[in-house]
Amino acid sequence: MIDKENLKYWYIVSLRTLYKPLTFLPVKGNRVIFESFSGDGYNCNPKYISEKLQNEYGDKVEIIWAFNNTERFQKELPSNIKVCKYRSIQHLVYRLTSKIYVCNFLQAIEFPKNHKQISIQTWHGGGCYKTVGNQESGRLSSYVKRQNIQLSETDFFVSSSDYFKQKVIKEQFNFDGRILNVGMPRNDILIKNSSNEKMLNLKKKIGVSNDAVIVLYAPTWKQTLDKYETLDVELLKQSIETRFNKKCEILFRTHLYGNQKLSNVRNVSEYSDMQELLLISDVLITDYSSSMWDFSFTNKPCLLFTPDLEEYISNRGFDEDIFTWGFPVCQTNEKLSQEILDYSEDDFKLRMRKHHEFLGATESGEASQKVTDLIASYLDI
């Protein structure tokens, strides 16, 4: 059987060789290009850096975004930000002539790095959860090779904790470049106090009630779904309403590359900004997604629903034992219900404080500003 990933790898390597002479093109000193999840979103860390850069410097900086679906995201961007089709010729030109390249994923494509360019890797998670890089089992060698190509071209890697800096970036990704241990820009919105007006506007935009307990169920991507019990929505609602004495509304957001389905919930999988969903939610239920790290800084309850835990540990594995993270681990719907009914705000806050201390969290609410300041120091503005 033909290894498609290996063919893709050699296709990319061949085109990079062909494009190599173009890496000596002059860069435009005020041009910055952003990509998120291989062109699939206007979100995550790149979005919040882009917004801060736009707010700080306006038209002094030429900002480019590359999308697979340009029409979908064009309307979300300020009119003076340019958009191009991901992996198009126009994208190639912008990538090769941008002074700064910012992205949140590690899968090199056919565009090599310009010798005069600064590449900033923000990644898309924090904490001590799923293994990545050389510790991640089940990944094809061609996948790892593409990852390593991009790592070799990265100048700065953004980190959210001392643990992530040492154990993940340095050891699992084998990155020996410069590390910005300043927190994730996407989490600034969760750490800083948001105005009531902002919260009301977001709830109206998303379509949820202002006087209900908003529960967000956001599982990570996984291959095994059918043989495990699914979330019992009615039991979850009943448990939330009993514990908090308020009406409950459940939002469901599958992983960007997932295909999980759930009935009797409001599906917000097409909503591009996960951080805004986390901001308006009162409770997060996930499994192994690093959204738990983000949400932990709100001190609002987060519970893990993990019916496939043993298989996930066998197939993927964790940096640290899941039972030491501080989040209630629930392998059944009954356990999830009981944990909700027994929830203690003071106890949970204490557990989160210990979790942050153990990892040496560096989230401060100023990450966007710090990364923007770094970018500006390299631009001709």
Rank of each mutant, 00 (worst) to 15 (best):
2 I>T: 15
9 Y>W: 10
12 I>E: 10
18 L>E: 09
21 P>N: 00
44 C>M: 08
46 P>S: 10
51 E>Y: 11
52 K>F: 10
59 D>M: 11
63 I>T: 07
64 I>V: 11
65 W>H: 05
68 N>I: 13
89 I>Y: 09
94 Y>T: 08
103 C>P: 07
118 I>L: 11
122 T>S: 07
125 G>Q: 03
126 G>F: 08
141 S>G: 00
149 I>G: 04
151 L>W: 08
158 V>A: 01
161 S>K: 11
162 D>K: 15
164 F>L: 11
182 V>Y: 14
186 R>W: 03
187 N>P: 06
193 N>D: 12
194 S>E: 13
200 L>M: 14
215 V>K: 05
216 L>P: 09
220 T>L: 10
222 K>C: 08
238 Q>R: 13
240 I>S: 08
248 C>N: 01
251 L>M: 03
260 Q>A: 14
262 L>Y: 06
267 N>G: 00
270 E>H: 10
270 E>K: 11
276 E>Y: 01
277 L>W: 05
286 T>G: 12
287 D>W: 09
288 Y>K: 01
303 L>G: 06
305 F>S: 02
307 P>L: 06
315 N>I: 09
315 N>Y: 07
320 E>Q: 11
324 T>S: 12
330 C>L: 03
331 Q>T: 15
332 T>I: 06
337 S>Q: 14
341 L>N: 11
341 L>Q: 10
344 S>R: 04
345 E>C: 09
346 D>K: 10
352 M>R: 08
368 S>K: 01
369 Q>T: 14
373 D>M: 08
375 I>V: 09
